[in-house]
């Protein structure tokens, strides 16, 4: 939107004030992240000299990362989180787009009851205890599937995707259908290529959900050797426990026992942060294109 001709030029004070406030907001978001990254890359001496978090770049070192990725708790937790995120996002996207397409033709058989079933999940959560009992009843305790299957489909993402599919004109798919293409072919060859934006957005939402999975892991994974990154983050950074504690037997046997100095702690934070920072720029332009909003407002 460009300034229209009728608009008076904003006063100097107004413009300065706005610039100051906006800068402050951006700094408030970026500064903690900047300090954490910087500290994780600093040598032990630089951290000691700063007396805590490093704000001014000094001697840099990858020592903390080398140590973390030399094997042991954090390496394994990263692999667990990556595995769950990749597998989970793939499963979620497959299941969600299939169902969204299956429910995108009003008037098809069972369309209304099935849609109702999906929408009803908005209204009433089943509750923590019964859900735990179902997961444990299925024998999923201490299985990575417990982090994926219960959250594989969220009604919100399904509804958003379906709304986008509904907005695709029927003529586009009708001709393929006349030519004898199966619904699966139409979805794969015609509908999905038209839906990259919405797929990117719900893919990001799912992936972030899996990467950030915390409470489900607290609930369903008793075996600390299977812990994903967020639990490691809480234990060794937020709670500041020594890395000896709670380490599983085979990791201790491998001889990795890390005192969590600040650089190492901040490296764990950065590792938890980086995938989000990395994927986010590729997806965020779709937010502004209104993929989500259009769907939410219907």
């Amino acid at each position: 939107m460009n300034a229209a001709s009728w608009a008076e030029r904003p006063s100097l004070i107004g413009r300065t004030g706005k610039a100051v406030v906006l800068t402050a907001i951006v700094v408030a978001v970026v500064f903690p992240v900047y300090m954490v990254v910087l500290t994780s890359l600093s040598t032990q001496e630089a951290v000691t000299r700063a007396g805590g978090l490093v704000t001014v770049p000094g001697e840099m070192s990858f020592a903390a990362y080398e140590e973390l990725f030399a094997g042991g708790v954090v390496t394994r937790a990263v692999l667990v989180s990556l595995g769950v995120t990749v597998a989970g996002t793939f499963i979620s996207l497959t299941v969600t787009t299939l169902a969204a397409y299956g429910l995108s033709r009003p008037g098809s058989l069972l369309h209304r009851p099935l849609l109702f079933l999906v929408l009803l999940t908005f209204l009433f959560g089943p509750g923590l205890i019964p859900k735990y009992l179902v997961v444990s009843g299925l024998g999923l305790i201490d299985s990575y599937w417990s982090l994926i299957l219960p959250v594989a489909v969220t009604a919100f993402n399904l509804v958003v995707t379906r709304a986008f599919f509904l907005s695709i004109p029927g003529e586009v798919t009708d001709s393929a259908r006349v030519d004898g293409a199966s619904e699966f072919t139409i979805l794969r060859r015609i509908v999905l290529p038209m839906s990259r934006g919405v797929i990117a957005v719900i893919g990001l939402l799912y992936a972030v959900g899996y990467w950030n999975a915390f409470f489900d892991a607290v609930l369903y994974l008793n075996d600390t050797a299977k812990w994903p990154l967020q639990l490691v983050l809480r234990q060794y950074v937020y709670q500041g426990q020594s890395m000896f504690v709670g380490q599983s037997a085979d990791a201790a046997a491998a001889g990795r026992s890390l005192p969590p100095n600040l650089a190492i702690q901040m490296s764990i934070v950065v590792i938890a942060l980086v995938p989000v920072l990395f994927v986010y720029p590729f997806v965020q332009r779709h937010f502004t294109k209104g993929v989500l909003i259009g769907a939410v407002k219907g």
Partner: peptide, 18 residues
């Protein structure tokens, strides 16, 4: 519509179970 129905089975199944 059987293909459309088939497509909804995994999602509906997961919602039913969990």
């Amino acid at each position: 519509d059987w293909q459309l129905l088939l497509m909804t089975v995994p999602a509906i199944g997961l919602l039913l179970v969990f």
